[in-house]
Amino acid sequence: MKTNISSALLLSLFCSFAYAENYDAIVSPAFSSQDESAHHYSKITQAIAAAQAAGREHYTIYVKDGVYNEKFEIKVPGVQLIGQDRDKTIIEYNSASGMKRPDGKKWGTSGSYVLRVSADNVTLKNLTVRNSFNYPANDAKPQSDPTKIRSSQAVALEVNKNANHVKVEQVVMDGYQDTVLVKAGSTTYFKDCVVKGNVDFIFGGGTAVFDHCNVIARNRAAGYIPMGYITAPSTDVHTPYGLVFINSRIEKEAGVPKDSYGLGRPWHPTRTFKDGRYADPEAIGATLYVNCYLGDHLFGWDKMSGWTKDHEVQWFYPDKDARFFGYHNYGPGAKNMSDGHKLPDHQGKQITIAHVLGGQWYK
């Protein structure tokens, strides 16, 4: 009996060492301060700091199952953040645009992220990123309620400006308004992911491919029609591709009615120019759906407002102020893709992942 126990212990120790050698750092909520070392941490932010200190070309962090109440930015190129189980390895934080930061200032939309990627060649895999701001409860409050958050944008994942070759695989991005933000100059590949949200919940000026992803429109308090919009791109007119969905499913939660969501609307962000501050005229947003299932909640494209130099409302329309197209889509919502927004074969056939992302770095 003693021999068997000893053998089992040795096998366990051997497996632990071999397991640890596969990763540069391991994070677990079960680790105590006594466990923390050059390889073991109780917080993801500690492992990110270790990656920065190491200065390596590649640094792999393995995150064990658990709920990590952390808000952080990855500034180190070549970091791989890999979860144990997509639905059980959860990074979450409660931060909305109109909420106050510890210093008393408001987060703002861009600052409301849970996880921000600000470096090249970063990989996120097999985990959930959730903004836990209680949008439904806030949404249900009357306008007269002083506790109602007026700016309810709450980003889960943000890919920062000019962060290139970012890979997001088997990741759930869970939020409501503005769930995923990809900023101008960035390139991101989303593979086998789930994105949940309602208002403009995939947005920004970056180039991103969503390959075999499930995009889920969430239910909302009664009385809101449209309930929301899948995309709000602000792609620069000189950038050929913006938000591209390939072989994906644009679905809905239970209770979401027919014809209640727009495929996208053109976001012209307010910027400061030499002659004043107004909606960017060169943000000719681009969204493209290729070989996608479109659910019955999708009514087509929609308009979006911005501001003129004289602080007056200006409307931007999908037919002339955006690049909104589809190719070979199917499902009940596909019928609402008007002919003027369908790519001809000679253009549709060239829409491959490598073509959009500018190479095969995503493999």
Rank of each mutant, 00 (worst) to 15 (best):
V117S: 03
S132M: 04
P102W: 04
K335I: 15
K167A: 06
R56C: 08
F201L: 07
Q314M: 15
G228Y: 10
M99D: 00
T235L: 03
I48N: 03
F31P: 05
D280S: 12
M1D: 11
N134W: 00
I202G: 01
G331T: 13
I44S: 09
W301E: 00
R220N: 14
S305K: 09
D296N: 13
G228A: 11
I48F: 07
K320Y: 14
P142Q: 13
V129Y: 07
I5L: 08
V155I: 15
I284H: 01
E36P: 06
I90Y: 00
C292R: 03
P240R: 10
A322C: 13
Y68S: 01
I351M: 05
R277T: 09
Y278A: 01
Y317F: 15
F324V: 07
S110P: 04
H328L: 15
H328S: 14
F17L: 10
W301V: 04
P269G: 12
K252T: 07
A38W: 08
D259K: 13
V195I: 15
M99K: 06
H355N: 12
V63W: 01
E73C: 08
Q80M: 08
A322T: 02
G83R: 00
L157G: 06
L124G: 04
I74R: 00
N4A: 12
P77I: 03
K258G: 14
M173P: 03
V67P: 01
K71S: 09
G223I: 13
G340V: 13
R218N: 12
A49T: 11
A50D: 11
L9G: 05
A354I: 00
Y327L: 08
K258Y: 06
D120M: 07
D145R: 01
W307K: 14
G333L: 05
K258D: 15
N162G: 01
S186T: 10
G242T: 03
Y23L: 06
G66I: 00
G359F: 03
G205D: 02
I230H: 07
E36T: 09
G204C: 00
K43W: 10
S305C: 07
R130E: 14
K43Y: 13
S110W: 09
G55T: 05
A334L: 11
Y19H: 09
Y19F: 05
A119Y: 05
F203Q: 15
S6N: 10
G340F: 09
I44W: 07
K148S: 08
G223K: 13
N69H: 04
P332D: 10
N214S: 13
K141G: 09
V76Q: 12
M227H: 11
E21P: 02
R101D: 02
P29A: 05
T287I: 10
